[in-house]
Write a protein that binds this DNA or RNA. Structure first.
Length: 732
DNA sequence: GTCAGCCAAATTTTT
DNA sequence: TTTGGCTGAC
């Protein structure tokens, strides 16, 4: 491995005006990272420590004074991060020959170029999450397993396997019926993907890693092309991504990774925190730079967040500090229920707005999306405008996917998912029966569905179906002629010739959105054509299928922002509220919570807290409605980890946050005490059972009891006279 | 081919 | 409570 590890870099940091520019306004550790050139570099960058600044400066420095721009590769996780980074780099060093992109788009691009070596068709389709879902369902059906039982497990299991670079065969070696069955579904799913010439998101990484691993020529070539590799958010990389980076950098060893293990919150998507924790071990002679000065938050916020994260065992020790003000104390609000929690926040916001804050200064974070509803209602009735950072991705909208379906079929005739999507969109008399006949024909002949469609007169279909299919194949053939032209033109034609435009126009009055979206798509294509004159229809499809949500999550847009704790990563707001610090919710528990999971939840809480610049308010309620049942809630263990003397405890219920009394009245306490969770009961018909939960439903008390037969039964408390409390000793 | 009505399920979701 | 997916009836 090439090791030339210098802070006194051969580039003479202060020699040229350009270099001096790159180092302006940087602290010592930041400079060290920027001027590091050859060899491995680990940049442990705490929250709000100016990480992006360092990355962009270093990239510009490398591109202008150390090597040529096209030898630099900067990888991010999101398109948004990639775009931002690219912009900032270009501002420092003109020219856009540098590769700044996401892992997925890098892999998509490279796999297209090296499709032969990777054993892939050149025109593969990238299947998105909802297509993937359909295909996995098909795989389950093909094995004649129950979709309801296996779909979910297969979806997570297959993704997990691909992220860990496990093939179906390797997975089948695993012990256990469950795993073995998922491995079979995985194998069937791979078959179906191949039939469709499709790759899912996980495949982009997995296949790329396999290619680099098995093809020395390609690996060496890419290593030579990308002589300086930089990876952001390295704590979120999975096994495949680790492998890709490792193999590209193998010859030169010039790999810089940045990240913060304390902000690793995506292990459930395959991210492996050990990638960053063992980076120093994996890359000898690594230089490590820590950025611990925080420019975002007040001293008090940092100290509170720091106390919580310090509870995690086995983390790299790191203490954020700041020269910012002491600030106002962090507050913990105890509320009676979600409604009063929301109203307390609304009042707080209102009074701060009177003092000159703007609505855009506020953000409210919660653990699960369902918790936004009560907040929305309160904000709405208070007349405060808000937005939720969770838009459906533009490219996931039905009308958009329909249009893209036409283009996908034009480009990839094997894309059966797309074909099924458009074959009767808009309705043209090709219904379920006809499609099933075509499918059966395709299966008998071992051909694609499109081929079957083209051979409609051999399928033994009725006259009406044949006529419809004739019109449809004519349409496809007309469109086919456009595949080589501009994207904009192809979309225009697909829209009008398919009849979609007419259909959208008709329903415009009822719902103008779809037509507007379609037009928006045409505009986007036009823009793309202009910006990339060389690009093909296939390129555009690749580009769009890798775009996520619209990046609406901008810092300040004049409204209060609501989002999940996960969505908050990377953002900052002057005033932050984190709600629902209750047992089972933060940390979120399904059945049992392992230590690792608890630590990840703690990191999630930490991420939330460190978004706050000036004011941080944490809330919890004594009652919370979960799935239609109002249940008693207990404070989160994380609240106990807050440094008591630095917190302003604000108990709106006047009973202490552990109190059992509630705003709902004294009588509830009596009832609830009798029916504590875990209490054993006996019923004349159902035998012995155990109280699983209790709460209020439709204003009345309810307990849920699980009986020996494994069934759970709810009881309205006032009718629960058949339930008799028994002691443990009585039942053994 | 469409639509109402029923049942089951319910974290988080960078691509 | 809310949502999505599926089924069976027009």
């Amino acid at each position: 491995m090439a090791i030339l590890n210098m802070s006194e870099a051969p580039t003479q940091p202060d020699a040229s005006p350009g270099v001096r520019e790159f180092l302006r306004d940087l602290t010592e550790p930041q400079r060290e990272a920027v001027t590091h050139t050859d060899g491995a570099l680990l940049l442990l960058a705490g929250a709000g420590s100016g990480k992006t600044r360092v990355i962009t400066r270093r990239a510009a420095h490398l591109a202008t004074t150390v090597t040529r721009p096209w030898h630099v590769l900067a990888i991010t996780f999101t398109n948004k991060a990639a775009n931002e980074m690219k912009e900032r780099i270009v501002a420092l060093s003109p020219g856009d020959d540098m590769t700044v992109c996401t892992f997925h788009s890098l892999c998509a691009r490279l796999l297209r170029i090296h499709h032969d070596a990777a054993g892939l068709p050149p025109n593969f389709t990238i299947v998105d999450q909802s297509d993937r879902r359909k295909l996995i369902k098909q795989a389950v059906e093909r094995l004649e397993l129950a979709v309801d039982n296996w779909r979910r497990a297969a979806e997570t299991g297959i993704s997990r396997a691909k992220n860990a670079m496990e093939t179906p065969a390797e997975m089948a070696d695993a012990a256990g019926f469950q795993e073995k069955t998922i491995a079979r579904i995985y194998a069937a799913y791979e078959e179906i993907l191949a039939e469709n010439a499709g790759l899912d998101f996980d495949d982009l990484l997995f296949k790329m890693a396999l290619l680099l691993q098995s093809n020395e020529e390609v690996r060496a070539k890419l290593g030579d092309r990308f002589r300086y590799v930089m990876i952001d958010e390295y704590q979120d990389t999975n096994a495949a991504q680790y492998r890709i980076a490792n193999l590209i950098a193998r010859d030169h060893g010039n790999i810089m990774v940045t990240g913060d293990p304390d902000q690793s919150i995506y292990s459930w998507r395959g991210a492996d925190i050990t990638n960053i924790l063992s980076f120093e071990h994996d890359y000898p002679n690594v230089k490590t730079v820590r950025l611990e000065q925080n420019y975002r938050s007040t001293k008090r916020i940092l100290s509170v967040a720091g106390a919580v994260i310090a509870e995690n065992i086995g983390r790299k020790d790191k203490t954020l500090w700041t020269e910012n003000d002491e600030g106002t104390p962090v507050r913990v609000l105890t509320c009676s229920d979600a409604r009063s929690e929301a109203e307390a926040i609304v009042k707080d916001i209102e009074s701060l707005v009177v003092q000159g804050r703007r609505p855009g200064d506020f953000a409210i974070f919660y653990r699960i999306n369902a918790m936004s509803r009560v907040l929305e209602e309160s904000l709405f009735s208070a007349g405060i405008s808000y937005r939720i950072a969770r838009g459906t991705a533009f490219y996931a909208r039905k009308e958009i996917k329909d249009i893209l379906g036409y283009l996908r079929v034009m480009v990839n005739p094997a894309d059966t998912v797309a074909l099924e999507r458009i074959i009767n969109t808009p309705p043209r008399g090709i219904g379920k029966t006809t499609i099933n006949t075509l499918k059966a024909f395709a299966e008998r002949q071992g051909c694609t569905l499109l081929t079957a469609v083209m051979r409609y007169d051999e399928c033994g279909l009725g006259k009406r179906a044949v006529n419809s299919l004739k019109a449809f194949t004519d349409l496809l053939q007309t469109l086919q002629l456009l595949a080589g032209g501009s994207t904009r033109h192809a979309i225009d034609q697909a829209l009008s010739l398919s009849g979609m435009l007419a259909q959208l126009g008709e329903q415009q009055e009822a719902n103008p959105e779809p037509l507007a979206n379609a037009n928006e798509l045409v505009n986007a294509a036009e823009e793309y054509d202009t910006a990339n004159p060389e690009a093909t229809l296939l390129d555009w499809l690749t580009f769009t299928s890798l775009l996520g949500d619209e990046d609406i999550i901008e810092g300040d847009s004049g409204t209060v922002t609501l989002m999940t704790l996960h969505a908050a990563k990377g953002l900052e707001f002057p005033c932050v509220y984190i709600i629902g610090l209750e047992r089972g919710l933060v940390p979120l528990v399904r059945d049992v919570l392992s230590i690792d999971e608890e630590e990840e939840e703690r990191r999630l809480f930490f991420v939330g807290m460190t978004r706050a610049m000036q004011r941080l308010t944490i809330t919890h309620a004594l009652w919370r409605m979960v799935r239609g049942v109002t249940q008693r809630a207990t404070r989160s263990v994380f609240l106990d980890e807050l440094p008591d003397d630095e917190i302003e405890w604000d108990d709106r219920c006047g009973v202490g946050s552990n109190g059992s009394r509630s705003a709902h009245g004294e009588h509830l306490r009596e009832d609830l005490h009798l029916w504590e969770v875990g209490t054993l009961v006996r019923h004349p018909d159902h035998g012995i059972g155990q109280v699983m939960s209790m709460g209020r439903r439709a204003g009345r008390m309810q307990v849920i009891v699980r009986f020996e037969d494994g069934r759970e039964r709810p009881w309205m408390l006032e009718f629960a006279s058949d339930l008799e409390r028994v002691d443990f000793d009585d039942v053994g």
